[in-house]
Design a protein around this nucleic acid. Structure first.
Lengths: 117, 117
DNA sequence: TGGATGTGCAACTACAGAGTTGCACATCGT
DNA sequence: ACGATGTGCAACTCTGTAGTTGCACATCCA
């Protein structure tokens, strides 16, 4: 395995883990709508504490799904589409690969069926 | 929210949860390569017990990522690309939606900047 | 300067789920 | 019929993590 593909797998892994939590997906929704927001204001719109939101945002940041910038005493978070898009492409390619394999196996089975007659 | 979109959200959730585990992704890889396999043979290729594999396959089945069919005393599992493809489309649409929102916000900010002069 | 607001750090609880083992049951081949 | 192989069910352990609370520190503003 190449270094690049290993990194790609790790990147996909972190994105999938990040997206597997419903609260984190809700956070991404809120961020996408507002464009920019702090952990404190996001927590006001969710049934969890600010600290819980901070932890979720850290996970999303590690996955590359959000970025943060400090302005004075505030830390503003923004959504980053690139990581999501890359993972979507990975999934599409994987689905296509499965399709090809299944088609091949079906074709091989039919050929074997013909040969047996 | 419509019934369809609620179902879609639940479907996406189950797929993301299923894919967030590395052992389950490995199982999907093995299944895609072999086309068809039982929990017992899959467990031989993984560092976990058969029962662990069975549980993982149940999760994958609920997410629609695999299907099973009984042949005698064996239960054979196969990969199903449709659910994966649907989730990939959901992610692509979401990334595009984020892009649009970010572009709008950037545009609005520039307009406000112009107006202030 | 001092109160108000926002963030960071640490310790703690609680629950979900990944994994295990043991055994019962069903099915195949001889 | 009987041993071998494959599956199903149940109970259990254990680690990861989502969530909490409390407090200290930094920044804004009046």
């Amino acid at each position: 395995m190449t270094d690049e593909s290993r990194d790609a797998v790790e990147a996909v892994d972190s994105v999938l883990v990040a997206l597997s939590d419903p609260t984190r997906r809700q956070l991404l929704d809120l961020l996408a709508v507002q464009g920019e927001a702090t952990a404190t204001t996001l927590a006001e719109r969710l049934p969890v504490s600010r600290q819980a939101v901070v932890k979720h945002l850290a996970v999303l940041d590690t996955a590359g799904l959000v970025s943060s910038s400090r302005i004075g005493r505030e830390v503003r978070y923004t959504v980053r589409p690139a990581a999501l898009d890359a993972t979507a492409r990975w999934m599409t390619a994987l689905a296509a690969s499965w399709d090809r394999r299944l088609a091949n196996i079906r074709r091989a089975a039919e050929a074997a069926e013909r040969d047996s007659h």
